[in-house]
Every structure is written in structure tokens, then in C-alpha cells.
């Protein structure tokens, strides 16, 4: 019972934090500079790990799928298999998990350190809302950059899959590219942009909330970081399931 109460209380507090950010959007100052700085830190800073993750995920998809396709004589559909798995699911989810690990931890550690060193109190005492100054720019930066990182991861995943198919199984690149184009639909591309936007919101709001809730000095910062990464990763996976279902229904016209 206490777990449910704790969950509902946290949900309410996260909702309050998000509402304060949304309310603050129409007020000045708007901290565009901070948004750009966060986009640089989150987007450019995470590009390398997301590209690597995408590349090897594409490769491993070919590695696992190709023998089965070969059994059925359908190796020409390898590109389609990689594109479907990567663009629909693995690209958005794995990119979000990588960003949750790298950026979510950094956000909660930074805000947690600011809490324990009284910098958040100082900010409020100086008449600035931490929600507007610190939380909003990070959430906006995540919502903008996560889809871009996902696109980069998807592209390098397709390249990785194609290279591996050609290197290990001598699959003609033209057949692979043609198969990728056949297997890629507009709905998949839209879903691979919409999903990361939601994931960005989840990672941003949970990481900021956990960071701002830090208590107990430097030990507390460590606990907040762990909670931020674990919680946001779990919610990304849960949200992915429901988003997939909703988008599937919406695109097939069976939603309502």
C-alpha cells in the first residue's frame, strides 16, 4: 500500500514540476542560450555513442536474421528486416536508453550537487525559478535532440547492417538498399520521430525531478543518479509498449 501511495505522490510531484515548466514557457526570460547549450551537450555530446550503438545493432540484426532468411531463401529481404526492427523499435529505444544513461545521470548528478551545495536555494533566493532556468531548457533540449540522435542511430544501423551483410554473406549492396526502401514506410519514420520526443520528455522530467529531490549530501547524489537512470529507463520501455500500440492503431485507422 505504501508503495502505491509513494508512486502516486511522486507522480503528482513530477506532474507539478512539468506543469511549472509549461506555465513558465510564456514568461520572460526564456533562456534560449541555455537551451542551445544543453542541445550541444546532450545532442552533439551523445552523437558518438548513439551512432556506435546503432551501427552495431544493425550489424547484429543481420547476424541473427540472415541465417533464418537464408533457410527460407529470402536473403534479399535482409534490408527490410533490419529497417523494420531498427526504425520501428530498436533505434528509438536503444538511443533513449543510451541517452538516459549518459545524459539522465549527468542531469540528476548536476542538479543533485546543486541541491546539496545550496545552489538551488541560492537561485530561488535570487528570484529565479529553478524549474524555468534549469529544468525547462534540459527537457526542451532532450525533446529536440533525441529524435535527431535516433535518426543518426537508425542511419548508421542500416549502414552497419549493409556492411555486415556484404562482408559476411556477400549480399549485393543494391539488393540491400532496395530491400531497405521497400521495408521503410512513412508511418515507421513518423513513429521513430514521435517516440523519441516522448522518451526525451520522460528522461528529462524524471532526471530533473530525481536530481532536485536529492537529500543527504554526496551519498544522496549517487542515489539520485541511480534512481534517475533506472526509473527513466524503465519508463522508456513501458512507454514504448503503449506508444507502439497507440501508433499502430492510429496508423491502421483502428484506434477509434
Amino acid at each position: 500500500m505504501s508503495f502505491i501511495i509513494q508512486f502516486l505522490t511522486e507522480l503528482q510531484e513530477v506532474g507539478n514540476l512539468l506543469w511549472r515548466c509549461i506555465k513558465g514557457l510564456k514568461k520572460k526570460p526564456r533562456y534560449f542560450g541555455e537551451i542551445m547549450r544543453q542541445m550541444d551537450l546532450i545532442g552533439v555530446g551523445s552523437l558518438g555513442i548513439c551512432v556506435l550503438t546503432g551501427f552495431f545493432t544493425g550489424g547484429v540484426l543481420v547476424l541473427q536474421v540472415y541465417p533464418t532468411l537464408d533457410y527460407y531463401g529470402a536473403t534479399s529481404n535482409a534490408g527490410q528486416g533490419v529497417a523494420t526492427g531498427l526504425i520501428r523499435e530498436l533505434g528509438p529505444v536503444l538511443t533513449a536508453l543510451m541517452v538516459a544513461g549518459r545524459v539522465g545521470s549527468a542531469i540528476s548528478a548536476e542538479l543533485g550537487s546543486m541541491v546539496v551545495s545550496q545552489q538551488i536555494d541560492a537561485m530561488r533566493a535570487l528570484g529565479t525559478s529553478p524549474a524555468r532556468k534549469l529544468v525547462t531548457p534540459r527537457i526542451i533540449a532532450l525533446i529536440i535532440t533525441l529524435p535527431l540522435l535516433t535518426i543518426a542511430a537508425d542511419m548508421f544501423g542500416l549502414i552497419g547492417g549493409g556492411l555486415l551483410a556484404n562482408y559476411l554473406h556477400s549480399l549485393d549492396p543494391n539488393i540491400y538498399i532496395s530491400s531497405v526502401r521497400t521495408g521503410t514506410h512513412v508511418e515507421d519514420l513518423l513513429a521513430s520521430i514521435l517516440k523519441p520526443m516522448v522518451f526525451g520528455l520522460i528522461i528529462g522530467v524524471i532526471s530533473c525531478y530525481k536530481g532536485l529531490q536529492t537529500t543527504g549530501g554526496t551519498v544522496g547524489v549517487g542515489i539520485s543518479v541511480t534512481k534517475a537512470v533506472v526509473t527513466s529507463s524503465i519508463y522508456v520501455i513501458i512507454a514504448d509498449f503503449f506508444l507502439s500500440k497507440v501508433l499502430q492503431s492510429a496508423f491502421s485507422g483502428t484506434m477509434f
Binding site: 550537487s113 551545495s117 536555494d121 541560492a122 530561488r124 533566493a125 535570487l126 528570484g127
Partner: peptide, 23 residues
């Protein structure tokens, strides 16, 4: 509420124990 408090806080200076400077 928070908005009214922001107005009041602008009239108050606060010196924290460790300075609480923005790193």
C-alpha cells in the same frame, strides 16, 4: 504563491553558509 514570493525575494539578500556560488 511562488510568483509573489519571487517579488519579495528580490528585496532580500541571502548569504549562505558555504557561499553557495554557482560553480
Amino acid at each position: 504563491d511562488d510568483m509573489d514570493l519571487m517579488r519579495i525575494r528580490k528585496r532580500i539578500g541571502m548569504v549562505f553558509q558555504e557561499g553557495a556560488l554557482f560553480d
